[in-house]
Structures are given as C-alpha cells and as structure tokens.
C-alpha cells in the first residue's frame, strides 16, 4: 500500500456557523499531482485553506508525511514544507518582485540558502529578474502568478497547494504555467491543484477528485475523469 504523503480524512470545516465541507477525504502520494475539480461553491478553496491551517476543521483528520497537522497554524505548516498559493491575491502588491521573493525565503533559517534560492529563481524565470525592482502590484496577471509560484518554490517545499492557478489568465500563459508545474513535479514535488478550468489539470494529474457541495463525488485517474461522460457534461461544459 502506498504511503500517502498527504492524507485528508473525513474533514468538516467552514466559516463560523457556515459549514462548507461535510466530510471530505483525499490522499496525495509522494511525487503525485492530484487535481480537485468541481463547481463554484463546492468547497475547493476551503479545502486547501483547511489543509494549510488558515481554517481550522471542526471534525476530521489531516496528516502530512506521517505527522498529524489537523490543527496546526499556517506558520507551522510552512515550516513543515507546505506551500500554499491562494487564488487571486497571491503576491504582495506594494513590495517589489525582489522583496516578494525575500519574503518567500523568510522562514529559511539560513539567509545564504535564501539568496541562493533567489539566484536560481532569476535563472529559471528571467522575466522576474528583469522586473525585480518593480512593485509586484504592477505586474501582469501571468507575471504575478509566476511570481507567486516562484515565491512558493523558494521554501523548497515538500508539497504545493495551488488554488485555481489558471484563473483569469490567457491560454498561452496557462500553458507556460503548467509547464512550470510539470517541471516542479518532475523534480519530485507533489502538488494538489484545485481547478475550475479542469481540462488541462486533469490531463496532467495522476489522480483527481470531484468535489460537489462540500462532499466527495468521484475519484479516478486524471485521464479517467477526463474521459468520464458525466464529468464532461457537468464539470467540463460539454
């Protein structure tokens, strides 16, 4: 039996009196890309926020690399190597590109490590180096997304949680981004991706889940769900 790297078991969570997740479960194996799709309001974002600790689950169990993280705070989860890239506001607009990356490295105790990591970022994403003194708020949508992912990768994460990375982006930019996602995975990082524009993600994913109204609906390989007629009809708009 594969040891799951991330395990979410029967989690209930929400905002105050409003419960959004009613007993959701999933797993992510080491080096896997797992995708979660579903309509608006199904609780996909809530799920990621609960895993990283921004929201505390009311019931359920979350485990990462063998230790329980159900009620940990985001700061602790970051130390464990969980990187979370939120949907939308995922960079610090009033900080420069460089400063955004510096923030990414803030939890690395060794500042030399951080500086080296930033050097790598310049090599990997030359566009960011070109704009490194510019306030992140003036970047284009695609550039912001790239910066957000670069920021997360400085942490040398052991798991990346991505919330709708392709939202609001042009198709060419989305392609580029998924190219980076693929590359990161080939370097050994597992990713949990929540997507609305599911087609691309499903093609890339090893496994995928469908979440609807806060509950598990379907589970299969990425290909499997992509070819599933019901999924195509309900969630892929065909």
């Amino acid at each position: 039996m594969t040891e799951s790297f991330l395990e979410v078991r029967d989690v209930y969570s929400g905002y105050g009196k409003i419960e959004v997740l009613h007993g959701v479960s999933l797993t992510v194996a080491p080096k896997e890309i797992v995708c979660v799709i579903g309509p608006n309001g199904s609780g996909k974002s809530t799920l990621l926020k609960t895993i990283v600790g921004l929201i505390q689950p009311t019931r359920g169990f979350i485990q990462f690399d063998g230790s329980e993280i159900s009620h940990k705070e985001p700061e602790e989860n970051v130390e464990l190597g969980i990187a979370y890239i939120p949907q939308g506001k995922n960079i610090f607009p009033s900080l420069t590109v460089m400063e955004n990356l510096e923030m990414g490295g803030i939890s690395l105790k060794d500042s030399r490590k951080a500086r080296n990591a930033i050097q790598e970022i310049w090599e990997r994403y030359p566009i960011l180096q070109k704009r490194r003194k510019i306030k992140a708020g003036s970047l284009s949508g695609g550039e912001k997304q790239v910066l957000a992912m670069a920021r997360a990768s400085i942490l040398q994460p052991r798991l990346i949680l991505l919330d709708e990375p392709s939202i609001g982006l042009a198709p060419k930019v989305i392609d580029e981004m998924y190219h980076h996602i693929n590359r990161m995975n080939r370097e050994g990082i597992p990713l949990l991706i929540v997507e609305q524009n599911a087609r691309k993600a499903l093609r890339l994913a090893h496994r995928a889940y469908v979440l609807d109204l806060g509950r598990n609906r379907l589970e299969d390989t990425g290909e499997g769900l992509l070819n599933n007629e019901e999924v195509q009809h309900l969630y892929l708009g065909r």
């Binding site: 990283v52 921004l54 985001p74 700061e75 130390e79 979370y84 610090f92 400063e99 923030m103 939890s107």
Partner: peptide, 21 residues
C-alpha cells in the same frame, strides 16, 4: 527584513502567514 515583513502583513495578512512570515 522585519520592516518588509510589516509591509507584507499590511498588504495581506493571510498571504503573509502562508508565506512563513
């Protein structure tokens, strides 16, 4: 760094937390 962290927290507290600040 701490001053920049202050500016980051002012921008977006949640993001700051998940960045490890």
């Amino acid at each position: 760094i701490i001053g920049k962290a202050m500016r980051a927290v002012s921008d977006n507290l949640e993001l700051a937390r998940v960045t490890g600040i």
